[in-house]
């Protein structure tokens, strides 16, 4: 089962790796509302086709890949919405909501497992397809591309938002192709990409290797513990929201510059989980210690959204989708690389091999955070206006 689980996960990740960059250009042409709506609806609705073929066959694996493509295509759209709907000093609050994906992971275990046990696997697919269909109806009724297009905003609110966001910063304005040469030679863009890679590598190692470590070395099946399996994910989301609000507040009060705030959050989201991964392989005989520090690492990783992800919209609001698309491509590559390292590095489950896998992830987190500290930025780059 483990090999099959890896294959399904791997194909989904390949989808999320290929989709974001093409999607960022498509989103600039047709608008983020359509792309985000189609991405979420497509990934959920495809679940309804799984029961028509054999589960865990190449048919199912192909569906997982396409679901990954749909899911990966949604990321640039979110950053375009952030750029066109939120003033610069309120964007981290919105971007921190992206961590709701983590709550979705927890809900899959919390709701999905009893449902599969009671009504079978197929019921999970029908539930997902129905929920996404209902969501898509709400999405198309309620959401618009920008404050200018929203029918229920008062004139006062619309004027306030347009004044605060500033001229020229909207999703529609991103239609001209990005200045690729200047974008790809921009150090802050690569800082975002590298830090996203590190973040995803760390998260994948925490979710795959640390949970497996608890299971095989301590006999503690975290996924069957109702509280401890969901606590880290909800904590991650709440921490992300808190970091987002706090960082917007301190930037609004001019207590710290945006660049300093982003770097401080990368320090929290990368160095702390890195330190946890470094020590978790040496954590004695009681499973309570590794389980507690695993939870702490997942929770503080919530700072990623208000740190690295928000930096992608800071550096180029007009091309936020493209910069975030590039970052998410590197992020998916980090998740894939971590999955391969975990799979290949844990043959035989020797103490040395666990420590090696954890150590590699800790190094990647520390290295990518150092790169961000050196070349990351929270300032709008000149090529944003080209």
């Amino acid at each position: 089962n483990e090999g099959l689980d890896f294959r399904l996960r791997e194909m989904f990740l390949w989808g999320t790796l290929f989709a974001p960059l093409p999607s960022s250009r498509l989103t600039a042409k047709v608008g983020p509302v359509r792309i985000f709506g189609i991405g979420i609806l497509g990934a959920g609705a495809l679940a309804v086709f799984v029961p028509f073929g054999a589960w865990f066959s190449s048919y199912h694996i192909t569906i997982r890949f396409v679901q990954g493509l749909f899911t990966g295509s949604t990321w640039p759209a979110l950053h375009m919405l952030a750029a066109s709907w939120f003033p610069p000093l309120q964007r981290s609050g919105f971007v921190s909501c992206y961590s709701a994906v983590s709550v979705g992971h927890a809900m899959a275990g919390l709701l999905g497992t009893p449902l599969v046990l009671a009504l079978g696997r197929d019921s999970l697919c029908y539930l997902l397809a129905t929920l996404t269909l209902l969501w898509a109806m709400g999405w198309w009724i309620l959401v618009r591309e920008s404050p200018a297009e929203h029918p229920r905003l008062s004139d006062e609110q619309r004027r306030h938002l347009q004044r605060a966001i500033g001229p020229g910063l909207s999703a529609r304005n991103a239609v001209p192709p990005p200045p690729w040469r200047r974008l790809l030679s921009s150090l802050p863009v690569w800082a975002c990409a590298m830090a996203t890679l590190g973040s995803h590598w760390g998260q994948a190692t925490l979710q795959l290797a640390v949970t497996k470590y608890l299971m095989l070395v301590y006999g503690f099946a975290l996924r069957y513990d109702r509280v401890l399996s969901v606590l880290p994910h909800f904590g991650h989301f709440l921490a992300a929201l808190t970091f987002g609000r706090v960082v917007d507040h301190v930037r609004g009060q001019a207590l710290v510059s945006t660049t300093t705030a982003r770097k401080l959050l990368v320090y929290i989201s990368h160095f702390l989980p890195g330190a946890v991964l470094f020590v978790v392989g040496y954590s004695g005989c009681d499973p309570a210690t590794p389980a507690a520090i695993y939870t702490a690492a997942v929770v503080v990783s919530g700072a990623t959204a208000a740190g690295v992800y928000s930096s992608a919209v800071d550096v180029a609001p007009n091309f936020a989708g493209t910069v975030f698309g590039l970052s998410q491509t590197f992020g998916a590559a980090g998740s894939l690389a971590a999955s391969y390292v975990v799979k290949e590095g844990l043959h035989g489950s020797l103490p040395g091999s666990w420590r090696l896998v954890f150590g590699v992830a800790a190094f990647v987190l520390a290295f990518t955070a150092t790169v961000f500290m050196a070349i990351g930025s929270g300032s709008v780059q000149p090529w944003n206006y080209s």
Partner: peptide, 23 residues
């Protein structure tokens, strides 16, 4: 809009983990 984005991402996370749950 924020609420709909959160719900959408929640569903996205659910879909991502659904295969492991079914397994």
């Amino acid at each position: 809009m924020v609420g709909m984005v959160v719900l959408g991402l929640l569903l996205s996370g659910f879909v991502e983990r659904s295969a492991s749950v079914a397994l």
